[in-house]
Simulated scan of single mutants.
Amino acid sequence: MSGDIETNNENRAIHVQIKEFIKRESNASFIAGGVAGAVSRTVVSPFERAKILLQVQGPGSNHAYQGMFPTIFKMYREEGWRGLFRGNLLNCVRIFPYSAVQFAVFEKCKEIMLGQRPHTTHNLTSGERLIGGSIAGVVSVAVTYPLDLIRARITIQTASLSKLDKAKLSKPPTVVSTFKEVVKNEGGFLALYKGIVPTSLGVAPYVAINFALYEKCREYMENSDFNFSNPVWKLSAGAFSSFVGGVLIYPLDVLRKRFQVASMAGGELGFQYNSVTHALIHMFKHEGFFGAYKGLTANLYKIVPSMAVSWLCYDTLKDMIHKW
């Protein structure tokens, strides 16, 4: 009997230690996640802008941009090296809280889920990781979405997109002027959240798949002969998880950008959607299956190295914070 009591006390003590560990993880995750997000997005900024330009070429455009590398060369030719990083500063301002909240919320979800379980293991099931990742994705979108919309507007403002050319500027507008224009001319403050539904529908499963797969890869490697402290394995796990998630939810990412910029230049980009369902039907009907995957190559060039670098930075910085 006394042995059972001692065992239960030990289990409770271990359980408390695990919960305290995860609480510290949540704080470290906020800082490490923010820095990792900003660094990784800067590295792949040219691919990010190329992806957006390819995505917003609807059936009404002249398809001025063809292919990922030709698009990057065209940006450089027309706008110089600054064109490769158009919108990146705002993206970093957005991605720091976005990434920080995402990682911190995921760790908090892990803490809450652990508190509801009687056993002492700190490894979540795949289903629990998917749930935690989905919640983290939705919360991070809600916190930073207006900045994402404004960045998308600034990103394409100086681009050669046929009917947008008449509204094209020699240099992009400022964040403040874009903010004022959207609020004043497109329906008030709520206009800053145009496209948040397809964004959430896309981000939630992507983050869920990305986080769950990465942690599953880490768990597998830590229980095998792989040395997961090696940066190569962290980069590989991050690249694999982001590749799978990116391909599976890509059509929703296309819709996100189109909803964000559809009202620009008088709605002459060639698409106007009433809802996510209408948008999906219209896109597949008028542009075919591959129309839903415009810019996929550019997106993979962006997210695969971006998330690989992000996971490497995140794990490395978090370890450094714990040592401090």
Rank of each mutant, 00 (worst) to 15 (best):
R12S: 06
G34M: 04
W233Q: 03
L114V: 12
N27D: 09
E219H: 15
F240S: 09
G246C: 12
L164M: 13
I14V: 14
E111A: 13
Q272E: 14
I22S: 07
I321R: 13
V35A: 13
E48D: 11
V139N: 03
F243Y: 14
L164T: 06
G127Y: 14
S99H: 09
A64W: 12
R12Y: 04
L317E: 06
A142Q: 05
N8R: 08
Y301W: 12
L164R: 05
A100M: 02
A100I: 02
G67W: 09
S40F: 02
Y145Q: 02
I72V: 01
S126A: 15
A136P: 13
H119R: 14
G270V: 10
Y76N: 14
V143M: 02
G137T: 13
S29Q: 08
L149H: 03
S45G: 11
V143D: 01
F243G: 07
F259P: 03
D148K: 05
A298P: 02
G60Y: 09
M113N: 08
E6W: 05
S275W: 04
V175A: 11
T71K: 12
D225Y: 02
S26E: 15
C92Q: 12
A292C: 11
S229C: 05
G83R: 03
R117C: 08
F30C: 00
M68D: 09
W233R: 07
L53G: 08
F290K: 05
V244W: 03
V43R: 00
N27G: 09
I95T: 03
A142R: 04
Q116H: 14
S134A: 15
N274Y: 01
I22E: 11
V139W: 04
D319Q: 08
Y273T: 02
P198H: 00
E215F: 04
F103P: 00
V207T: 15
A104S: 13
L300D: 12
V16P: 08
G195T: 10
R86F: 00
S160W: 07
G195V: 11
D315G: 12
F290P: 00
V182L: 02
I156D: 02
S242H: 10
V139S: 03
R82M: 12
V232D: 05
G195Q: 10
A159E: 09
V141A: 01
F189D: 01
W324G: 07
V43G: 01
L164H: 15
L54V: 11
T71G: 09
L252N: 07
A28M: 06
R94M: 05
M68L: 12
I31W: 06
V203W: 15
T120F: 09
R77C: 01
V16Q: 13
L164F: 13
C109I: 13
I150A: 05
H63G: 10
P97E: 02
V276K: 07
Q260T: 06
G266F: 08
E215D: 12
K180R: 04
V175K: 10
A262T: 05
I95S: 01
C92P: 04
F289S: 05
A279G: 12
F211A: 13
D4A: 14
M283E: 07
L53W: 03
K108H: 07
G83Y: 03
D225A: 07
T7C: 08
L90M: 13
K171A: 14
I52Q: 06
A159C: 09
A298Q: 07
Q157H: 11
I150M: 05
A142Y: 04
S61H: 08
Q102K: 14
I112S: 07
T42P: 06
L169N: 12
